[in-house]
Amino acid sequence: MFAVCATPKAIEGLTWAMCYLTSGKHLDFYWSFVTVLLLLAITAPVAMALGFGGAMAARSQIAPLRWIGKAYTAMVRGVPDIVYFLFFVIALDQGIEYLNHLRVCEDLSQPVFRGLEFHVCAEAKVPPATASPFMFQAYSFGLAVITFAIVFGAFVANVIYGAMQAVPHAQLETAEAYGMSHGQVFRRVLVPQMWTYALPGLTNLWMILIKATPLLFLLSVKDIVYYARELGGTKTQAYDYPHADWRLYYFLGLLVFYLLMTKLSEIVLTRISNRLSKGQATAAGEAMRKAAI
């Protein structure tokens, strides 16, 4: 990056530190923080959508749809999500390529699963082998988003399902007494009222989602943990910047990052919670009403 950094082994002191901290790998490390934030920003709304769908399905009048919804919400209850992460991505990747295989390949006579090997034609590969490294990274990032969203969507479905049940029945009955149809009650009363009950659970989930991101490296995304390990490990003279085992310092840096994220989220979510509780028939709403008088 800087001209002095061309001969890393000849420099020392502050210059060395500056060159070290701006090496290509460190820049990748800093980018990986953006990756993690991006993953959070994309996963949260997708998981919300999936969870909302799951909760609606679980409440559905149609039995098969209800079973799917219930099965989805039950999926994550007993099983550690790390177990999903360990084989789900390969399964997802194979699933996508298999569908693509059926769509684009001309020769479907060959079996796709041969023993442990998985074969699709070259055109069905996602992304194609000619794609740039960036495309491959984007693809594995996409798979990670989908995996996270599916697992966390199941949690969101649990929370939203519970929140929908918690909306006082009197409110729904009042709406019906005003002549609203089923759909209208759902859209105009149940969904807007549900959020105040869902928020504590969703807040909790957001915190969990933040703290689940160190497992991203399992999904072959090069995340902050991957780089902290890689950069912190002992570097022999084979590298430009040899140093001893510095993993402890890198991980302390990550600790600070996560604590800051948590603190920031707490501040923002408390504000949202206060807004939503305004005028609600809950303990928090009641406390706000009293404080205002």
């Binding site: 790998k25 990748d28 084979a238 590298y239």
Partner: peptide
């Protein structure tokens, strides 16, 4: 094999 300081 290793990832050098340029990230390659």
């Amino acid at each position: 094999n290793f990832i050098d300081d340029k990230g390659e």
